[in-house]
Simulated scan of single mutants.
Amino acid sequence: MNKILYVTLIATLVCGIGTGFGAVIATLFRKSSSILMSMIMGIAGGIMLSVVTFDLIPEAILMGGMNTTLLGVFIGVAFVVVLDLTLPHTKLMKKYGSTVKTALLLGLGLAAHNFPEGLAIGSGFMGGKALGFELAIVIGLHDIPEGAAVASPLLKSRLSRAKIILLTAMTAVPTSIGAYVGALLGEISSTFITLCLGFAGGTMLYIVCGELIPESKDLFKGIFSTLSIIIGVVIGILITMAM
């Protein structure tokens, strides 16, 4: 098999399984109480907030500098603001409700994040087979809580379990594209990757602060929603340290 296609297939399988498994875990709680749903949303939001703060943004700054990173963040925020203002008026939102909007926004943000992850996997394989597999496995594990984060808002919708898992797994598609590009070109411009990481960070910050955390607080206004966000942040720190 062609090496580039082989790398792309590995990235697709690992990240697709990671996000899909996260969705499966989340769907097991479809009929749970508001307290448990609030905790799931809070933990997912905390993880994403932590990963963006301690992983994405610092990595982007080291790779391409503060100015390029902030440009990417601002572009990402502007992009998701336009989506946030547009999505409530679409037929999809009217049919399935606002929870789909939250999941779609989060899914788009994760898709933007997954592309540079794919670049990392593709470039890693070009540097050595062992390095490529190591990056693929770590990123696949990292995608499990991301998959749960995308699937969690959909649990209140009328979408079937199979559709929720399928839609969540599809957020891994940009990883495949990124892996293909990374393997094809070998070395990607650091400025380009920095913009991608900044863009992903901006979208994730907006979604977590504007959608996931408020949704967690709305589902249950007691102390458990706050504690779950903190737990999520701690888990995100541990994930970042492990990577």
Rank of each mutant, 00 (worst) to 15 (best):
M66H: 11
I4C: 00
F74Q: 00
F79C: 02
L62I: 01
K94C: 00
F192E: 03
P88A: 06
L108Y: 04
I47K: 08
A136T: 08
K31D: 15
T191W: 07
S157W: 13
A242M: 14
G20V: 08
D55P: 02
L155Y: 11
Y180H: 05
F220D: 14
I235M: 07
T102E: 00
I177F: 15
L167H: 03
F21E: 02
L167P: 01
S34T: 08
P153F: 13
L70W: 09
T99S: 14
E215T: 10
G46T: 10
P214F: 05
S38K: 04
T69E: 10
T191D: 10
G147V: 11
G20E: 03
S50L: 06
L110S: 01
D143A: 14
I47D: 02
M41E: 11
T175V: 14
G147Q: 05
P153W: 09
T102Q: 06
S176W: 09
L131V: 12
L104Y: 06
S160R: 03
I207Q: 03
I231E: 04
F21R: 01
G128R: 12
S189C: 03
N2I: 05
L219W: 00
A200T: 11
G198M: 06
G128F: 11
G107D: 08
V82T: 07
L184P: 00
I40G: 04
L205A: 04
L185T: 09
V233H: 09
V82N: 02
E146D: 11
G22I: 09
I139N: 07
D84V: 00
H113S: 02
L110M: 13
V77N: 09
G222D: 14
N67A: 13
S190M: 08
I35F: 02
G18H: 11
L108R: 02
V80F: 13
I57D: 09
R161G: 03
V150Y: 04
T53W: 01
S152R: 10
V150F: 03
M126W: 05
K156Q: 10
G124Y: 11
A78P: 05
G18N: 02
V77D: 12
P214V: 13
T191Q: 11
T240A: 12
I121V: 15
L87D: 02
T68C: 07
E117L: 03
V7D: 12
A136I: 09
P214L: 05
P88H: 10
G42P: 12
T99D: 12
A78Q: 01
G22A: 05
A149I: 12
P174R: 08
G132P: 07
L205W: 07
G236C: 10
A111G: 13
I213W: 10
L83Y: 12
A130M: 06
G178Y: 11
M93I: 14
A169W: 02
L184K: 15
V24R: 04
F74H: 02
T102A: 08
V80L: 15
D218C: 00
I144L: 09
G109W: 11
T99F: 03
A23N: 08
V173L: 15
G132S: 09
L28K: 11
F192P: 06
P153G: 12
M63A: 10
L87E: 01
T99E: 07
V208H: 06
T8G: 12
